[in-house]
Simulated assay, not measured.
Amino acid sequence: MTNEQRRLRMMIITALFAAIIGVMAQITIPLPLVPITGQTLAIGLAATILGARYGTLSVILYVIIGAAGIPVFAEMKAGVSVLVGPTGGYLFSFIPTAFFIGWFLEKTSFTIKNALIANIIGMLITLTLGTVWLKVAASLSWTEAFAGGFTPFIIVGIIKAILASWIGILVRNRLISANLLLTIKSA
């Protein structure tokens, strides 16, 4: 397989993960300020499976598609107004979160233990940046922002981090075994 074919394959997989994030975003549990969604699980999966470069690119593509008006954000929302609204900080935070998870795994090793560490730290990155944005965008006090944008997501976030780590490493190993995914050394 040529380098061009490998890159094309990775671009297709990257686009597929952007679509998976959009589909998982529609799995929601409504809360007063910010819903619990499946998109954070999908972000963890993308970064755990694809690594820093392609995992981050899949998230950037997802944000661009949503900003362009395709309803891929939670609750079938789309547009720049969502990105500048109260939940926009969470959407933007997915980019450094995906990068960190992939980077951490590339610098250590793609094991379930390391993936769990990376995904839990990634969850904290998302919650921290999202909560700061929520405070500013919704004109909330720090207490209100923390109570509505951080605290309700800790337990669910840990569960999603466990799932993303376990499923992500399992799928990554199977894709590599089937020669369908580039490893970091050949990327």
Rank of each mutant, 00 (worst) to 15 (best):
N3E: 14
E4I: 01
Q5H: 02
L8Y: 08
F17D: 01
A18Q: 00
A19I: 13
A19T: 13
I20W: 05
I21G: 08
M24V: 05
Q26C: 12
I27A: 14
I27D: 11
L31F: 14
V34Y: 07
V34C: 06
T37F: 04
Q39W: 04
Q39F: 05
I43Q: 00
G44F: 01
A46V: 02
T48R: 00
L50F: 09
R53S: 14
I60G: 11
G66D: 06
G66I: 05
A67Q: 09
I70S: 08
P71F: 15
P71Q: 15
V72K: 00
F73P: 04
F73K: 04
G79R: 14
V80G: 03
L83W: 14
G85R: 07
G85K: 09
P86W: 06
T87P: 01
G89H: 12
F94C: 03
I95R: 04
P96G: 08
P96K: 10
T97R: 06
A98Y: 06
F99E: 02
F100V: 02
F100P: 00
G102V: 07
G102M: 09
W103I: 02
F104R: 05
K107L: 14
S109F: 05
S109I: 03
T111F: 02
T111R: 01
I112K: 10
A115F: 05
A115M: 06
A118T: 07
I120K: 08
L124A: 15
I125Y: 01
I125H: 00
T126C: 07
T126S: 04
G130A: 04
K135G: 06
V136Q: 01
A137Q: 11
S141V: 11
S141C: 12
T143D: 15
T143I: 15
F146M: 15
F150A: 13
F153E: 01
V156G: 14
I158W: 09
I159R: 04
I159Y: 08
A161M: 09
A161W: 06
A161D: 06
S165G: 13
S165K: 01
I169D: 00
I169H: 00
I169V: 06
I169Y: 01
R172Y: 10
L175P: 02
L175E: 06
I176P: 01
S177L: 13
S177N: 15
A178Q: 10
A178K: 14
L182Q: 11
S186T: 15
